[in-house]
Design a protein around this nucleic acid. Structure first.
Length: 368
DNA sequence: TAGTCGTGGGG
DNA sequence: TCCCCAAGACT
């Protein structure tokens, strides 16, 4: 049980553990506001290990806020390719330009100004204010929620409004003055390394205060929220090849994969064979009359609450000079295979491109 | 406020 | 194989 007089002991114990066990991370060296900001946006809904390579590549290419503001949207999107939730990078790009215009190119240090930047919500504002600027504010992410739900044995889902308020108040009561940078990271690091989905209580420095552990119900905390249903989709896409070049188009400015390049295609409708879908979609989207030559593969991938089987076909153009009438895109290109690396593709299409690199049929069609 | 927005690793 | 979910924000 965590009594008020234990709070400072809990925090001190946690800070000692963090000092001994924290992972070395590129943004954990000098805590530059720019670095903290980029890392926090990259790590939203993303596992730490995946973020490191992206962070190093990003900061190598864009070493400061001015460089981000000066970069094109295509360039920042390409640096983010594969990380997902791409509105994050669009908002980050907008925020960089706002910082240049309204804050003289210096990352603002008051939490209201931080919170007002696009892409920065309550969590990220608290994280930057504390980790970059050392201010005494908490930040509550899924790790903090899980730790407190277990320590305090919360018996209803953490996302409920009263529970959110309780968790924030509990975190604030534990926060040692002047040490928010370390304390916030320590809570999250504990959640990531020890108090994870599968809890490792035998390694936990604060287990003596954990109510759920004493009751033997750690695995029942936090209480899961109702799940959103998963929808299974069949999608068909086509690789249209003509004169050694491949047709790609750029998706609209809004919706999923906004501004991404893709091989055209769409959802398989009721009673339709995927090969019929490709023919229909190419007519609807580009007014191209095409014929499937061969099935390439089926790629399974998911996005948000969808699970997709992507049926991929080689296509040939029946007639015309390859000039489309675009109905579902803002631009098009006929590109050489090796040029695909320069375009930003959704993960499923990138998997297809990678598979084609070693496909002998592909090589033959490009030569023909 | 409930839906939307990606992706890949782990159990 | 299939389901869970990870340093959330926006509309």
């Amino acid at each position: 049980m965590l009594h008020t007089h234990d709070h400072s002991v809990f925090s001190a114990t946690l800070l000692d553990w963090f000092d001994a066990h924290k992972r070395p991370l590129p943004w954990r060296t000098d805590y530059q506001p720019y670095h903290v900001w980029i890392s926090e946006i990259m790590l939203q809904q993303t596992q730490m290990e995946r973020g490191v390579d992206y962070f190093l590549r990003w900061t190598d290419r864009l070493p400061d806020i001015a460089a981000v503001a000066a970069a094109s949207e295509d360039e920042v999107l390409k640096l983010w390719e594969g990380l997902g939730y791409y509105s994050r990078v669009r908002n980050l790009h907008k925020a960089a330009r706002i910082i240049m215009e309204r804050h003289g190119g210096v990352f603002p240090d008051d939490i209201a100004s931080i919170r007002a930047l696009p892409g920065i919500g309550d969590y990220t504002a608290g994280a930057i204010a504390s980790i970059a600027f050392g201010q005494d504010v908490v930040c509550v992410d899924a790790n903090v929620e899980r730790v407190i739900a277990r320590v305090c044995d919360m018996d209803s889902p953490v996302k409920q409004k009263e529970n959110m308020a309780f968790i924030r108040a509990t975190a604030e009561s534990l926060l040692p003055s002047g040490k928010a940078r370390e304390f916030n990271q320590a809570m999250m690091e504990l959640g990531a390394l020890v108090c994870s989905k599968k809890a490792r209580c035998e390694s936990c420095p604060v287990s003596r205060w954990c109510e759920a552990l004493h009751l033997g119900i750690v695995q029942e905390r936090p209480v899961p929220a109702p799940r959103k249903p998963i929808t299974h989709l069949d999608v068909a896409t086509g690789l249209l090849i003509r004169d050694g070049r491949i047709f790609i188009q750029k998706r609209p400015e809004h919706g999923v994969w906004a501004g991404f390049w893709e091989f055209p295609g769409g959802c398989v409708e009721e009673g339709e064979h995927p090969s019929e879908t490709v023919v229909r979609e190419f007519m609807e989207e580009m007014e191209f009359a095409v014929t499937p030559i061969d099935k390439i593969t089926v790629i399974n991938h998911g996005y948000t609450t969808y699970r997709v089987s992507l049926h991929c076909y080689f296509l040939k153009l029946d007639k015309g000079d390859g000039t489309p009438v675009l109905h579902a895109a803002t631009e098009y290109r006929w590109v050489r295979f090796d040029e695909l690396d320069n375009y930003t593709l959704p993960a499923g299409h990138r998997k297809l491109a990678d598979a084609l690199a070693t496909d002998l049929r592909m090589a033959a069609l490009l030569k023909a």
